[in-house]
């Protein structure tokens, strides 16, 4: 992390967070994660340019934009998934509840428990449904007894809207479930370690419309319990599930605001062209 940039105050000139929730006395709409002046490079190529954004608990935030615009790259920065890419370099500041997630003392395993991720393709472990959920709580030592673990598994599956469908076959393999069920299993797995933020990278793109609707309904139910950020290519989905939308283009955050405004009256012409299907 660049020390100069760490010291730098959030830029006023490129403050895309005007309309972001601000700290309120009771803290309800306080940002859960804040990014300031984030640059990301893959080798020489700059993938994210001076990006600042706030993400709150009360709103689902959607990242939209054409392929290669940096939305997934930025999402992966939010729980340091880019650490696994040797040529990736991140500068600027990303904070979770005030903690600098790129600080040397930050435990990345712990960070990823606090900031969970759900991927495009459901990726359950080749283990039982029960063990898929129990895995995280076990390694993070979140339970002290079998009963407690059972309770975490049940409540996580319930939160993910999957309990009713799997409660009688918890020992079946997670990979034997349907695609939509597998994705909800992955959400249950993320929820099991009691995260603060859930990042979703195209969570429905491999699912049929019914399974998609169930995930969208689930996202709505989880809103307020976790800060949720979703990357989606499906603009209708962004419009349906999110309250805040961020439009990315060529590595910059072009526009960030209320989803209803972005989809009915965007301020930027680039946003307008993209969401109305006039993009290049």
């Amino acid at each position: 992390m660049n020390e100069d940039q760490k010291m730098q105050e959030p830029s006023e000139s490129l403050d895309m967070t005007d309309s972001a929730p601000t700290n309120t006395p009771d803290g309800t709409d306080a940002p859960k994660m804040t990014a300031r002046n984030v640059d990301v490079f893959y080798g020489e190529k700059q993938a994210i340019k001076n990006l600042s954004i706030d993400v709150s608990m009360d709103n689902v935030t959607a990242f939209i934009g054409p392929s290669g615009c940096g939305k997934s790259t930025f999402l992966r920065c939010m729980n340091r998934m880019n650490d696994t890419i040797p040529i990736a370099r991140v500068t600027g500041e990303i904070r979770l509840e005030g903690d600098d997630i790129y600080a040397p003392q930050m435990d990345v395993v712990q960070l990823r428990a606090r900031v969970g991720m759900v991927f495009q393709k459901p990726n359950p472990f080749p283990k039982s449904i029960y063990d898929n959920i129990a895995y995280g709580p076990r390694i993070h030592g979140l339970s002290t007894s079998k009963d407690e673990l059972d309770h975490i598994v049940e409540s996580s599956l319930q939160r993910a809207g999957l309990w009713g469908e799997v409660k009688d076959r918890l020992q079946d393999s997670g990979t034997a479930l349907s695609g939509g069920q597998q994705q909800r299993l992955c959400i249950a797995r993320a929820v099991a370690v009691d995260p603060e933020v859930i990042l979703m990278d195209e969570p429905c793109s491999a699912l049929d419309p019914i399974a998609t609707a169930k995930i969208e309904e689930l996202i709505d139910e989880l809103r307020g319990k976790y800060a949720i950020v979703i990357v989606t290519h499906n603009m209708q989905q962004a419009a349906r599930v999110s309250q805040k939308t961020a439009f990315f283009h060529l590595g910059t955050l072009v526009e960030y605001g209320d989803t209803t405004d972005i989809f009915t009256n965007p301020r930027e012409e680039k946003t307008r062209d993209y969401i109305t299907g006039r993009y290049g």
């Binding site: 009915t264 109305t276 299907g277």
Partner: peptide, 9 residues
């Protein structure tokens, strides 16, 4: 066509 923004308006 599921129009958006100025198209929808």
């Amino acid at each position: 066509r599921a129009p958006m923004a100025d198209d929808l308006r």
